[in-house]
Amino acid sequence: MLIFLRELKRNRKAFVIWILILAGFNAMMFAFFPSLSGEAQKIKDLMDVYPDSMKSAFGLDRLDMSTIMGFYGIENYLFIALLGSIYAMLLGAGILSKEESDGTIEFLLSKPVTRNKIVTGKALCVLFYILLFNIIMTSANFIFFEIFKKEAYSIKAFVLVSVGPLLLHLTFSAIGFFISMFIVKAKAIYPIAIGAVMGAYLISIVSSISEKAEALKYITPFKYVDASELIIEEKIRIVYLAIIFFVITASITASYVIYNKKDITI
């Protein structure tokens, strides 16, 4: 509990900065909706010059920009998913390794506390901020949806496009947490987190553009919670949920095991 509370405080500033910027961006994009939705047909005509595979990669073929849900799926969803994942992975990868790269772990380990408690306190803090992040974003989204909607939208789809990013964020933070068992240098954390998230996103694009690369969709979490699938089909496939569940559980379990066995020298 002590470590959890300490981590809440330590990571508060970064959280506030991320949420302010992302929530601000999100609001700004919603503000474009009234004017853009009127031009939806024109935009669609404009987009028609692009190949179908390209359009499907961005969900343009299935989503309707003139509805608030379609607009959200094309415009806002991606960047909440993407930038939120970068935040989540940075948070997950940095929270434990920072003690080692700063050398403060010597202080912490000299206190009467088990390594399990250290891992638990830190992991819970990551979970807390990711949940808070998504609760704030979802609440803001709900308000914007209510303000800008022209006709009723599916609540089920709304829940799904809200849960989707949460699952992504949890997955990337768990992977980051696991990676930080091996890589503790603060300098390495940023390129790894940004590279992993952007890489996974690029793979998801490639897998939808090229049919040959379709199998790649299983290795990128972005494909698991694709906006057009969530909105049109109103479901997340069980196989994807199972993979997410497995990756998170395995990462966290392995982290506990490895951290207990690890020699910590600074």
Binding site: R10, D102, G103, T104, E106, F107, S110, K111, P112, V113, I266
Partner: peptide, 15 residues
Amino acid sequence: IKKEIGYLPAEINYY
């Protein structure tokens, strides 16, 4: 054990 130990490291790294 650590409940009853005070440790002063060679190099001090604090938050």
